[in-house]
Amino acid sequence: MNQNILLCGVGGQGILLAAKIIALAAEKAGFEVTTNEVHGMAQRGGSVTAQLRYGDAVYSPLILERQADVLASMEMIEALRYAHFLKPGGLAAVSTQKIIPVTVSSGKMQYPADAEARLREVFPRLELCDCLDAAIKMGNAKLANTILLGTLSAGLAGIDLPLWESAISECVKPAFVEANLAAFRFGRKENER
């Protein structure tokens, strides 16, 4: 069994922390884990991706297109940009943030007005959530990525809830553990199970 996860968004949205938590949770579940992150120039406002693979035997750190079990995006058009990585039937977890690129603000390009409709059309298994708004309601905008993490965790095999919670507890500062666990459970819809 191998699981492939592609995380995307824009620099500063907490993608790399989410990747770190998934990697640790998978490690705790006894899997081989690899991750790949975008560094350098791409951090200056460019789109950011992190790839994770875990399973019984993993050689390559990169995901082949059409092979991701989960695509999770902190931004709507970034989900569309990487949609072709998701395997048929895979879970797309998308936060409804729009981060307007300078190419749009300068009038050279357009942010698609129908981004949400396109997401619904492309992803049969779509979990759409305004993670930022939900996080602000929970008292801290920085919880948005943990909410998305909760949502995407429901699409991954082989990692039980206690392992997720233990990974989160190790990756965030002690003062923020409870809030992050609550955000994770909210995103995972634990209360509705």
Binding site: I77, A83, L86, L119
Partner: peptide, 21 residues
């Protein structure tokens, strides 16, 4: 060869080049 073409309409997505912060 698996079909790797874009599944979403992506040719008109605005690019996100790196920029001064």
């Amino acid at each position: 060869l698996p079909d790797f073409s874009q599944v979403a309409q992506a040719d008109d997505l605005p690019t996100r080049p790196p920029m001064l912060c």
